[in-house]
């Protein structure tokens, strides 16, 4: 399929910081409305991948296509306006804005809405992300779950076609994760494409159509969630990455 027919397409993307390689000749595509989960050990280059998609970072080589356009050289704000919404792994609320104002800014800037329309949209998003009760709370005073919700609410405010979720379930309790999964499923029902980086694998399995495993800056496995989780290399790299297997690895190396 040519890049023009996919919502998001990365072609031959590479990135390194000094000697640390975070992406090597990566190819990745996401279709309209698709939900893709990304797993991988820490330092696999997952968040860097998001940064290159959202425009925080430029790849050293390769191109990023979004909605039929080459956005490799586009600013982060331009990509947001084009329809790429992103959440941060560690929530970064606007400390001095209220929750409602935070989302309103996004509807206004990223979503290009004005006045009443922007305010209605912001209120609607707060309702859907379960933040209505906190609408007038300063964003800096929210707890972790609410901050994660606010990250999603802000990203939704920009009217995205593609939503990048960076470990939104991390650090939450199981019931909280379940609530978030519901919110994400609601978003999916609207036809938004979602790319979700997550260590909480059971949350992913319930939500995504396709999963890929990233390690050392390359794609190790790509397929349905169950296929990927059954993959031997993935099991060794990621799921079996506990203390025992790490020791075993060291022994075989030496």
């Amino acid at each position: 399929m040519s890049p023009q027919h996919e919502l998001l397409s990365l072609r031959g993307v590479s990135k390194h910081f000094g000697r640390v390689i975070v992406a090597t000749d990566l190819d990745l595509s996401v279709a309209d409305g698709e939900a893709l989960g990304i797993v991988g050990p820490n330092g696999a280059g997952k968040s860097t991948l998001f940064s290159m998609i959202s425009g925080d970072l430029r790849p050293d080589a390769g191109t990023v296509w979004f909605d039929g356009n080459d956005v490799t050289g586009a600013h982060a704000y331009q990509r947001t306006r084009a329809g790429i919404g992103r959440t941060y792994q560690i929530p970064r609320p606007f400390e001095n804005l209220t929750v409602f104002e935070s989302v309103l800014v996004c509807c206004h800037q990223g979503g290009g809405r004005r006045g009443r329309d922007a305010a209605d949209r912001a209120a609607d998003i707060l309702e859907r992300t379960g933040l209505r009760a906190e609408a007038n709370t300063a964003a800096g005073r929210l707890g972790l779950l609410q901050r994660k919700r606010l990250e999603m609410a802000r990203a939704l405010g920009t009217d995205p076609k593609l939503l990048l979720l960076d470990e939104v379930a991390g650090g939450l309790t199981d019931p909280e994760v379940a609530e978030l999964v519901e919110v994400v499923q609601g978003i999916r029902a609207d036809g938004l494409a979602v790319v979700w980086i997550e260590h909480v694998v059971h949350a992913l399995v319930k939500t995504v159509d396709r999963m890929l495993c990233l390690a050392g800056g390359r794609i190790v496995a790509d397929g349905s969630p169950l296929e990927v989780l059954a993959n031997a290399e993935v099991r060794e790299l990621y799921l079996g990455g506990g203390p025992e297997s790490a020791t075993a690895d060291e022994e075989t190396e030496s």
């Binding site: 982060a76 941060y88 970064r92 800014v105 800037q109 990223g110 920009t158």
Partner: peptide, 15 residues
Amino acid sequence: RASSDDPDTATLVGA
């Protein structure tokens, strides 16, 4: 105000 709080994030939400 959003940019004053966190310029990078403000850029990310489309400012």
